[in-house]
Simulated assay, not measured.
Amino acid sequence: MSGRPDPVLSDYFGFARRNLLVIGVTTVLGLAAGVAQSLLTPDTYTATAQVFAPATPVHPGLERDPDQRLPREMTVDTETRIMRSSAVVGRVATALGVGPEAAAELLVVTVPANTRVLTVSVRGATPERALNGVGVATDAYLALREQIIAGARQRHLEALQSRIGVLESRLAALTKGRITRDARARSRRQALIRQIDKMEKQVSALQQQDTAGGEVVRAAVRPRRPDRNNTEVPPVSYAAVGMLAGIGLGARRDRRRGARPERASGHLPGDARPPQPISRRTAA
């Protein structure tokens, strides 16, 4: 700024005095824009509920032998996908009065580590909409989860009953028209009877099983305050941006002012004096 290779503190104060008006105007404009954004941005409210999703096997009622692995269970990722399925999101969208895509962004599902408790949060334009939205989300999730479990149980029942029918047909064909006296035939007949008895016990256990899976462990409450608590952030941020813009404009003005004398004089800044015109007598 002062022509020295390393500017000193007085150079910065001089720069600020020369461009005080520009920096002040841009800072005030940025502050005004930030205040306008804070005033015009609508408030949002968040309601939160917690739902317990117990570990449920995909093949309910299936008995296993000691050397077999346990049936696969519904994982936490599966529970989260059920909560964010189109059936649940669609009902939330209706409750909030928005589209499905917007409802998917307003519905947030988190699961703490090593738990099966889903934390469900829904944002809405009013406290009532947020509370209604999270209630609709949890109800739709529990209903869909119960439907999935009931469907898996029904399919397994049908498979067991079909298998029992096949075994009974084999048993009837084995003993049809005669009394079994052969030891191998008797052993086969007893094995079929044991299998049928085992499957009938599985059918009985499935029919008595409760398909209601999951429950709300902490109901949502009406939010009292909006989510946007730091209303001072936009004005301060915009004012800082405006100040930086003013500093940039001031630096540009100083560069232009320093370049004009050089172009007008027609000589380099390091010259001691301007070039003298050459007369005809001197030339001669």
Rank of each mutant, 00 (worst) to 15 (best):
T44D: 13
L167Y: 11
G3W: 06
Y238F: 15
K176W: 08
G14P: 03
Q147K: 13
I149H: 11
P57K: 03
L268S: 11
T56I: 02
A49Q: 02
Y238R: 07
G90R: 08
S265A: 15
T119I: 05
R194M: 08
I82Q: 04
A251I: 11
A264R: 11
R189S: 15
A33I: 10
D6Y: 10
I23E: 00
N230V: 00
P261Q: 07
A55R: 09
A240T: 07
E168W: 09
P127Y: 03
R81E: 15
P60K: 06
E146P: 01
F15G: 09
P226T: 04
G61I: 04
R225E: 15
R170C: 08
Q68T: 07
M199N: 14
A185E: 12
R194L: 13
N19W: 03
I149S: 02
R281P: 11
I23A: 02
A113G: 04
Y12N: 05
Q68H: 04
D67G: 11
V109S: 05
L39S: 05
R184K: 15
A143F: 00
V8N: 15
S162R: 14
M199E: 11
M243D: 00
R18Y: 01
Y45M: 04
E232W: 14
P7E: 08
P277E: 12
A16G: 04
V166G: 01
L20A: 11
G30Y: 00
A55T: 11
Y238V: 08
D65P: 03
V136C: 03
D67R: 12
S85M: 06
R256Q: 12
V233F: 13
R225I: 05
G151Q: 13
P127N: 08
M74Y: 03
Q50H: 04
Q50C: 00
G133S: 09
V134L: 05
R263Y: 07
T211L: 05
L192R: 06
V166P: 00
G24W: 06
V98P: 07
R155M: 11
T26E: 02
R181A: 10
H59I: 08
N229R: 12
A104D: 09
S121I: 01
T211C: 06
L29I: 15
D197P: 01
R170N: 14
I164C: 10
Q276E: 15
F52Q: 06
V51R: 00
D77C: 00
V111A: 12
N19V: 05
A47H: 06
P235R: 00
V89G: 02
R129N: 10
A264L: 12
G266Y: 08
Y238W: 14
R123K: 10
R64N: 11
K198M: 07
M243L: 15
R225D: 13
A283M: 12
L20K: 00
P66H: 06
S169K: 14
A87L: 12
A53T: 08
V108L: 04
S85F: 07
Y141P: 02
R129F: 05
R257I: 03
A185S: 09
A212H: 15
G90F: 03
V122Y: 03
T115P: 01
G124N: 02
T27W: 01
S162K: 14
L157V: 12
T94Y: 05
R155S: 15
V122A: 10
S265G: 09
L40A: 12
G133P: 04
A36M: 08
P277Y: 12
R163P: 07
R178N: 08
G24M: 12
G97N: 11
E232S: 13
M74N: 02
Q68R: 10
L39N: 04
L107H: 01
R184F: 10
V120Y: 01
